[in-house]
């Protein structure tokens, strides 16, 4: 079963083929844990290796990802990705559909666990703790690494309950007054408080799209995450709601590390400090956002940000 640790999600057939285990290894060897189970030890060169242009590291990193690979069945969807997400920083992930950017952020809070055929390898660490380890409490992980989705998905509960649900689950409040405080603070930080303070008992689903999305953000920050992942958070919203969310992202970046997937290049340019360009499962280029949008280093990046894509 040692092998199964390397890939947190293995299918039954994978498990069967993993026996007998390979030669004994030191239990805490970081190199081994980064090697896909099918690959021979680190000697075998991987033909899919490539160099990402730019600096993948961040000062004061919250998330560190090294040699991350994701397979959906036989499909090698994400290939050898290295990337850090730093504190108080917004990283925008851009690229054409199917390039692996959503797959990548879904690794960061183990959302790929929900896909049976998905297999994740590599070293993914949140403050040095292995995200992919079997010992990792996924519920706790997802509180620390919150996620906001493309379509606002409030619980079919009241506005208050939407925000209170997480803190209650994680026992963050010992009494009603504390819970009220958390709900108030979260809605305030999500820029929604003034709009909903008189109707906290109304259904969350009755809010407008933009308000629902901010409610989802409030719900995410209510459990004090360290990282917020956003998967196209504005693509279902009108420009005004989008502008509010973008302002909110600016403010949230003062307290959290944020990774945002977006199809709007202008949005990436506006909200992020660093931009990562993905192409066919590879991380092609990572650099300061203004550099990527004025003078990118890689031809593929330039082609993409200028809308030159054949």
């Amino acid at each position: 079963m040692a092998v199964a640790e390397q890939a947190h999600k293995v299918t039954n057939t994978d498990k069967a083929s993993a026996v007998p285990p390979p030669a004994p290894r030191k239990p805490d060897s970081p190199v081994m844990s980064a090697v896909p189970e099918s690959a021979a030890p680190e000697l075998a060169p991987d033909p899919g290796k490539y160099e990402t242009i730019g600096d993948v590291t961040a000062t004061d990193p919250v998330l560190t990802v090294r040699d991350c690979n994701v397979y959906y069945g036989d499909n090698h969807a994400l290939q050898h990705v290295n990337l850090d997400v730093g504190r108080n920083q917004v990283v925008a992930l851009i690229g054409p559909s199917g390039c692996g950017k959503s797959t990548f952020i879904r690794c960061l809070n183990r959302m790929n666990d929900t896909i049976d055929t998905a297999r994740v390898t590599g070293e993914l660490k949140l403050h040095g703790e292995d995200i992919n380890s079997r010992e990792t409490d996924v519920v706790l992980l997802r509180a620390r690494v919150g996620m906001v989705f493309q379509k606002p998905n409030p619980f079919p509960k009241t506005i208050y309950e939407n925000v209170a649900y997480g803190p209650r689950l994680h026992g963050l409040a010992s009494n009603r007054a504390e819970l009220d405080e958390i709900v108030h603070g979260s809605l305030q930080r999500a820029g929604l408080w003034d709009e909903v303070k008189d109707r906290l008992d109304d259904a969350g689903t009755g809010l407008s799209g933009g308000q629902q999305q901010r409610l989802c953000i409030a719900r995410t920050i209510a459990v004090n995450p360290e990282v917020i992942l956003m998967d196209e958070p504005c693509s279902a919203l009108d420009p005004i709601a989008t502008a509010k969310i973008e302002d909110l992202i600016d403010e949230l970046a003062q307290n959290y590390a944020i990774a945002i997937v977006t199809h709007s290049m202008q949005q990436a340019a506006r909200v992020s400090q660093r931009t990562a360009y993905f192409h066919l499962g590879k991380l092609i280029e990572v650099d300061q956002t203004d550099k990527v949008f004025t003078n990118p280093s890689h031809k593929l990046t330039e082609d993409y940000v200028t809308g030159r894509f054949g």
Binding site: M265, Q266, A269, F293, T294, N295, P296, T301, E302, V305, T306, G307
Partner: peptide, 10 residues
């Protein structure tokens, strides 16, 4: 109308 980037912007 185009919000040009990179080489186009330059």
């Amino acid at each position: 109308t185009r919000a040009p980037a990179a080489g186009d912007l330059r």
